[in-house]
């Protein structure tokens, strides 16, 4: 039996390594079949099983490809998926994405040197036209195997308290992360920079105050009374440039109790965006498309592995 797969090397020419992390190695490359335009190639390894490609990886790649159908302006295009080679224990895939020059961290710093530390917002990219693009959508489970093999620690800073407490969690964890990044857009530096799980929680409570005991999740190993009872601090003290609308939104995004945190849809309807969208649309510096939000295909209640930032 022969396969007529044409070689990868004929299609893509690697130029440089641009990233290295828990998710594998990312290369900047040229797509030789498309006028040599730049692409980002991610090499990933997936566990080979008795039953071939694991269902989790298949499910996620199928979703990624399906997501492509929406051609959402704020999601990085997945251009190609290639099976490169395999051994008895692993399958190697190559995901080819649209190339975007900088991530949000470099954009905020306003300087080009790409840092490779784990403390970067690596999956939010900014194009040269100033369009935000989300990358690595739902890849946590595809990368799962690889992450288990590497010792790279995914940053804690954007992690919701329920994740750190190892309580049940769902999509509100992403809203928490959004809140953290929202602050970073004002301050150009992260809000909660913990060094360990407990340190991260303490840093959160230093600002939000220790939540009432009723809000503490059940069946977690860290008891509520292991933290000092501290009162909440006014947020504007930590985000001096914030206005009232933004402050109100932020408070609802980084709400300790995930049940009271805003949903993505509620956040989009917040008055902060109502005013801002109009001015942004006219300046067209950001392409935010309303009503094109993704349906989470009813999976919002299923706990999902959150890869951090």
């Amino acid at each position: 039996m022969t396969s007529r797969r044409d070689g990868l090397e004929q299609n893509y020419e690697e130029i440089a390594v641009i990233g290295n992390g828990a998710y594998g190695t990312v290369y900047k490359a040229r797509d030789l079949k498309n006028d040599g335009q730049f692409v980002a190639m991610k090499r990933i390894r997936i566990q080979n099983t008795e039953e071939g490609m694991p269902m989790s990886a298949i499910r996620e790649i199928a979703l990624l490809k399906q997501l492509e159908n929406y051609e959402h302006p704020n999601v990085v295009r997945l251009l190609d998926v290639r099976h490169t080679d395999h051994t008895a224990s692993e399958i190697r895939l190559m995901l080819v994405f649209e190339y975007v020059d900088q991530d949000l961290s470099t954009y905020l710093e306003g300087c080009p040197p790409p840092g490779l530390g784990p403390d970067r917002i690596r999956n939010i990219l900014v194009t040269s036209q100033g369009t935000l693009k989300v990358a690595d959508f739902g890849l946590a489970r595809v990368y799962g195997f690889q992450m288990a093999l590497t010792s790279v620690v995914v940053t804690l800073w954007y992690r919701a308290p329920e994740v750190i407490l190892q309580a049940a969690y769902a999509t509100p964890v992403d809203i928490w992360s959004c809140g953290c990044i929202f602050v970073e857009l004002f301050n150009r530096r992260p809000l909660f920079c913990g060094q360990s799980d407990i340190d991260q929680l303490s840093k959160i409570f230093d600002i939000l105050g220790l939540p009432p005991e009723d809000d503490w999740p059940e069946n977690v190993s860290l008891p509520w009374n292991s933290f000092k009872a501290v009162p909440p601090q006014p947020l504007e003290q930590f985000v001096p440039e914030i206005d009232n609308d933004a402050k109100d939104l932020l408070e609802k995004l980084i709400c300790f109790n995930p049940h009271r945190r805003l949903s993505a849809q509620e956040a989009m309807n917040h008055s902060y965006f109502r005013d801002d969208l109009d001015s942004l649309r006219t300046s067209s510096s950001l392409s935010v498309s309303e009503g094109e939000s993704f349906e989470t295909d009813g999976r919002s209640d299923t706990p999902s592995k959150h890869g951090g930032s």
Binding site: M1, G52, I61, A62, K65, Q66
Partner: peptide
């Protein structure tokens, strides 16, 4: 083994467009 090997060729051929 024949079917599992085929899976890789199939995935590549249908370009991972699975849905």
């Amino acid at each position: 083994e024949e079917v599992i090997t085929m899976e890789r060729i199939l995935l590549q051929t249908i370009k991972f467009d699975l849905q």
